[in-house]
Nucleic acid binder design. Structure first.
Lengths: 281, 281
DNA sequence: CCGCCGCTGTCCGGAATGTGGAAAGCGGCC
DNA sequence: GGCCGCTTTCCACATTCCGGACAGCGGCGG
């Protein structure tokens, strides 16, 4: 089976790096997977790769130290190495470090759960969190877990403060993935516009039916989103009414975090470049 | 030029993943490079790759979001993405988080600079630090910067509490690199033995001639090293005499950090697998 | 006990992918 | 203008990677 057959419009991009891209796609996939790791077959299926190919790549990743087998089982998961590779970049933009006290304060004063999200490639990652009075609302929001950027309220608020090119690119690439969050590119684009207009966004938690979410963006000096703070509360009149009052504090936290990052000696571009669209199918 | 010509003893390993390994070697290299990034040619030279090859790989890494061009220049450096990929593994072993207050305490009470190192592949990485009275001693120890595991005192202390296989593998692979730190595998092995025997190690700072270093290992529940705490002081009688007195506090800090990590719900293997030796030359 | 099943790991012929020498931009400096 | 250092593109070649087929392995049920 040749592949050259495809490429209808003669589009020919991202050539000569197939295996590298595949390996990073696997890393990204595992980054969002559960702590217990994933079986080879599941990874292969998720990546739409034949088992032997996935196996070969994972073996390479394993002895590069990027991936390890969860104890007892044969399941693959990311190893600590992955964290240490990111130490230097993290210290140029230590958003979790500076956000930490603000998250503490928010959960203490509101009782709602708090999430800190950051954009990674075309995903939104939970970088940190605090659990409030209703832990059930957060059941799926493990630290490090991922969703398509734009699926959740935090993601939409971040998209609202990204370059138009990046917004388009993300929406295009995530279009199919939105379905399982009962959304589509249009829904997302509408909320993004709203978030941009009012400076925050209220939405439903796609994780649990009863959750309601308020999110504001954390923006760097250029105005670009480098993260989002979300408060998660119950679907109740009480919470809905309090939202208005919560906003100033959330905005203040976002501003202070951004300011502290800005103070750092090395100014860094915290936002990502525009992810390239996938090859023509 | 065929490569098949080599392989004297018929050794044939790590096949079918050349480009993946190369790309991660580049990532590792950049992880240790300076904030300002590196030029294409320098990367290519360091990796012993032809420029076009390095270029192709870097381009792939760039639109995977792993690498970015430093603002203004064309230099390559790791992007924030790298940090977010590591969020989940980091939260299984958040050594910097738990170490932070202990580092504060150590620098406050001793006035010496403090370093937290972690093992990454065959390197030692500075995961965090506190600057004491003599900042000059730390000039080269940026957070995220790397040295061959075993080149410094912290690295030797970590090696002292790793599996014999891993020790051998690291020594073999780093043998050549030790030269520029005025050491060799034998020197390292001797210090490793000493560190294992006495539970700590005193050595010279390879970074600045005048520095003197005391290091203890942070060990997980199985006894394996997951990091090292180092105190850096001047080459003076005064500092030398105080070392004895500093040890209990350092040991205490190491134990408490390990204990807190242990308390976490998910027990994790913090140490790395044995890195494979390079292909036969 | 043996066959079945789901999964992991290995083999190997074939070709697409990755390679790297050569050369073309590109900007700065003398 | 010519030189120089660096980045980027090109393209023919063959090495690296691909993936179907199969072997191995442990658990389960008949």
């Amino acid at each position: 089976m040749t592949i050259q057959e495809k490429l209808p419009g003669g589009r020919r991009e991202m050539t000569g790096t197939q295996s590298i891209r595949r390996s990073f796609a696997i890393v990204r996939h595992l980054a969002g997977a559960s702590q217990e790791g994933e079986k080879l077959v599941d990874i292969a299926n998720a990546m739409e790769l034949p088992h032997p190919t996935a196996h070969r790549i994972l073996k390479a990743l394993e002895d590069e130290g990027i991936v390890e087998r969860a104890e007892g089982t044969q399941r693959y998961r990311l190893a600590a190495e992955t964290a240490w590779l990111g130490v230097a970049p993290f210290n140029r933009c230590p958003i979790t470090r500076y956000a930490s006290p603000h998250l503490d304060e928010l959960v203490a004063q509101t009782g709602s759960s708090v999430l800190l999200s950051v954009p990674s490639h075309i995903d939104s990652v939970y970088a940190d969190r605090r659990i409030g009075n209703l832990p059930s609302l957060l059941s799926q929001a493990e630290i490090g877990s991922r969703r398509p950027l734009g699926a959740g309220t935090g993601g939409r608020v971040m998209l609202a403060h990204m370059s138009p090119e990046r917004l388009d690119s993300v929406l295009e690439q995530n279009a199919a993935r939105y379905a399982q969050y009962r959304a589509g590119p249009e829904t997302v684009r509408r909320d993004v516009a709203e978030a941009r207009a009012q400076g925050f966004l209220v939405g439903n938690s796609p994780l649990s039916r009863e959750g309601r979410v308020v999110a504001v963006a954390v923006r760097d000096v250029t105005g670009r989103a480098i993260g989002a703070i979300s408060l998660v509360g119950p679907r109740s009149q009480g919470f809905e009414r309090r939202i208005e009052g919560l906003l100033p504090q959330m905005r203040g936290a976002a501003r202070e975090i951004a300011a502290r990052i800005q103070q750092q000696r090395v100014t860094m571009r915290c936002q990502m470049p525009i992810p390239p669209r996938a090859a023509a199918g």
